[in-house]
Amino acid sequence: MDLSYRMRLLIVLISIGVLAGGGLVVKRLLIPDSFGVYGPYRADAIVEAALVPIRHGTNASCFKCHPYEANIHKNGRHHTISCEFCHGTYADHVKNGKKTGTLPVKKGKEITTLCLRCHNTEIKARKEKVIKTVAMPDHLKDQNVKITHNCNQCHHVHAPLKYIIRAKQITGLMEAGS
């Protein structure tokens, strides 16, 4: 081709224009259809999210098959805590009203780790009046026990003050019924 320099530059300029225009077309093609119906996101995403199977059941869903734990849990200080936080999800355990899977049950040291996820003084996210925290190992030292003790050796995991209140009642530190 025998084009003048100016011509060539013009062609370069036009190509840039064409490329940019082409980019806009490609952009249009790539944007999902339902984008922007409600806002700058895919409207279909809402439908898809609604179709995701539900995995959590709430505490009420556990009670009918676990009346023993339910009874303790409901009357203890942990009554506001979700069973599933400590045990895993309903979906991993029950399908169509039948037990289909085993849930993890923490043992020994794991229990201490679990309790400290919420009760460690070092986690200062919430105030003492919302959740009581303990410093480790001071809390165990205060009770004059070895620091290898696990929390569930004194606290009932489902009703953490159950035995402690009981103990205080027996020793007369607290009146029965409180």
């Binding site: 780790t113 400290l116 070092e122 996210a125």
Partner: peptide, 19 residues
Amino acid sequence: MDTAYSFAAMPISNYVFPN
């Protein structure tokens, strides 16, 4: 150190949100 106690070693001060 046990993982359960390791928080105690963090050089954070006062209230820091977990996130």
